[in-house]
Design a binder for these strands. Sequence first.
DNA 1: AAATTAATTGAGCAGATGCTCAACTCTGTC
DNA 2: GACAGAGTTGAGCATCTGCTCAATTAATTT
Lengths: 187, 187
Amino acid sequence: MTRTDAGTANGARLIRDAAADVLRDVGLQAATTRLVTDRAGVGRGLLNHYFRWPELRALAWEAIFVEVEGQETAPARALEDWISTAFAPEARAYWRLWLEATEIAEGDPEMAAALGRVQGRLLRGLTDSLARGQTEGCWRCVDPAATALRLTALQDGLAGLLLAGTTDLSPAEAEAHLRQAFALETG
Amino acid sequence: MTRTDAGTANGARLIRDAAADVLRDVGLQAATTRLVTDRAGVGRGLLNHYFRWPELRALAWEAIFVEVEGQETAPARALEDWISTAFAPEARAYWRLWLEATEIAEGDPEMAAALGRVQGRLLRGLTDSLARGQTEGCWRCVDPAATALRLTALQDGLAGLLLAGTTDLSPAEAEAHLRQAFALETG
DNA sequence: AAATTAATTGAGCAGATGCTCAACTCTGTC
DNA sequence: GACAGAGTTGAGCATCTGCTCAATTAATTT
């Protein structure tokens, strides 16, 4: 036994986990197969035995966001949480992964599919929260789906501004902008 | 005379122009020095004699957007133009260039600087238009700068959604969303 | 214990990238 | 016409990329 237990067939799991770690650390663009195999403590060839790089990359990317989606909360409370955690400093890695995915999705069907699934779930959850809040009289809201889309797009755009660091926008201000837009939308 | 006129010293201009063309065609990520020199009809070495790649890339990128900034229009009319051209089909290449720049700006000071300049000018122009429209009574608008930032961020986010192509959002719908947000902001 | 199968390794390939540098071409000057 | 120098060339280097494949090791079966 050298370092891994050959013949045990836990290589695939090691690689999947390491890929997610690497994505979190260096982002989608800078991630390479060598970084992943080294992180997993596994030979270079094993990755290609189980996966192809675009497949593994999309897999690990989606896994990261699926993990975040775990916590579901109350109707109106969910929106407050969504807004207040949107630009938390520890979420920076997620902004980057999100924006990079948007771009990689061009010309990478597997990333496009993964991004579409996560986007769909996020948008659906937000729409539901808005609709339920509306029926419960928390706010008057014309079109939950349209509002959810605009709020998501605004968040993406604000995240892009923060990530580029080319404006004097702070995370706290970004959150305030998101909250203001939410207020305008829900009257 | 082979193909270029050696000794004429128009190489730098040829390369700059070719770089902008290549960026427009294939985007920031896929652009390479070889594509540029081939397009310019110039030897591989000449590019590096005049520029370094990050420098040339940022230069050509900014030149593209400076060219677009040319047309200035009336106070309230400017905003209508901005909204109606934001998602015109022929603007697709610009969305991509814009989003790619956001990401490349991390770890590329020259792109960050170029992006910052263009962002600053765009934001300032939008803020001015909003402020002037406000004093002329076209709308009541609480904070022109904040509204301009939100509208820009929303546009970026919508462009990202369109580019990824992972939702069923159409350019026309994106424009409608931007217009709706504008309406909510200006009351 | 031998044979068979599954799991894993890493040197190496083919392709791309930015960039270097000695050699070359052309223009202008005396 | 020889010289000088700015302008230009492209083969080639160093590095990185995902991926292949024959060889090796471990687990399983006989």
